[in-house]
Write a protein that binds this DNA or RNA. Structure first.
Length: 284
DNA sequence: AAGAACCCCAACCGCTGAGAG
DNA sequence: CCTCTCAGCGGTTGGGGTTCT
């Protein structure tokens, strides 16, 4: 077989390959073949199963959709919590993160990060990988998820994760020791929801002296009915301290009032209440 | 009611590393 | 070593559905 005939063959094969959404028939062919012969050797599988797809495409379809243990539906607060925690450890190692979420695929986790987490960062006008945003996640978002999860169900790792200090910003040294106490505080609030109101002395989330926040005897209330915080700077303290470096000009951010980010997906996903968002936003 | 804008996610693409020959 | 194939990973895209105006 000379080279030109080889090229001709491979070209015509390429032309025959299907792309785009999988049909029911293709799915059942793939399922049947894997049932009989197992996973792996995807290129051979594609050929022998009579699928006009690349091995790659077959593998992806199987792993992300057809495999029996693939979990479908929204991510639970527990799963979201785990993603945030593991991403803070490992970054965009989606596959590695997925290994710790049974039934969830790396693709799904990646999509979650892009569509939910990065969206929040965009709304706050910070980089999703910035220290500031990661601190918002740790000091604000994760405790919120913990509340949803119900503190009685938390694992030792989750508790430990929450208790960890946020990342230090080596340039501005914005985070201080008092962050630890805020974690404990939020954790306790989530855990001991029978208390309707807390007094703290002092409540300075990151010990950030640039925040112009009251230094002591701050109080805030926790609504036992809505399981939400109310009033004063409870929420915006955490988030805005972390975000200080990400908001170059507070005046510019007044434009946020004209944006619709409060009313859109930010709240839709049930992460933070409208009140929390308003406080977070209005502080700038 | 209709078009625009936005969101989500399945699927694709390019790259890398491992292993076989 | 070198080349080739394959599996796997992370980034990106496109289309369908939904919401907004």
């Amino acid at each position: 077989m000379n080279m030109s005939s080889l090229r001709k063959t491979s070209t015509s094969e390429a032309e025959q390959l299907r792309r785009g959404p999988w049909t029911l028939e293709e799915d059942s062919l793939l399922i049947r073949y894997v049932d009989r012969h197992g996973e792996g050797r995807w290129n051979l599988l594609a050929k022998h199963a009579g699928l006009r797809r690349t091995g790659k495409s077959c593998r992806l379809r199987w792993l992300n959709y057809l495999k029996p243990d693939v979990k479908r539906g929204n991510l639970t607060p527990q799963e979201q919590f785990l993603i945030l925690e593991l991403h803070s450890k490992w970054g965009n190692r989606w596959s590695k993160i997925a290994q710790h979420l049974p039934g969830r695929t790396d693709n799904e986790i990646k999509n979650y990060w892009r569509t939910r987490v990065q969206k929040q960062a965009r709304h706050l006008r910070v980089d999703a990988n910035s220290v500031a945003f990661r601190n918002v996640i740790r000091c604000y978002w994760m405790p919120s998820l913990l509340q949803k999860m119900g503190a009685q169900n938390e694992t030792p790792q989750q508790r430990q994760a929450l208790m960890r200090r946020p990342e230090q910003n080596s340039d501005s040294e914005q985070c201080g020791n008092s962050c630890v106490s805020s974690f404990e505080l939020m954790y306790n609030i989530a855990k001991e929801s029978e208390f309707a109101e807390y007094q703290t002395t002092p409540f300075s989330v990151f010990g950030n002296n640039d925040c112009n926040m009251p230094a002591s005897n701050d109080c805030y209330s926790y609504d036992i009915n809505t399981t939400r915080f109310h009033d004063v700077e409870t929420f915006n303290l955490a988030a805005t301290s972390a975000l200080t470096e990400g908001f170059p000009n507070p005046v510019d951010d007044c434009h946020l009032a004209d944006n619709d980010w409060v009313s859109d997906g930010f709240a839709d996903h049930g992460l933070w209440s409208m009140g929390e968002l308003w406080e977070l936003r209005s502080f700038h």
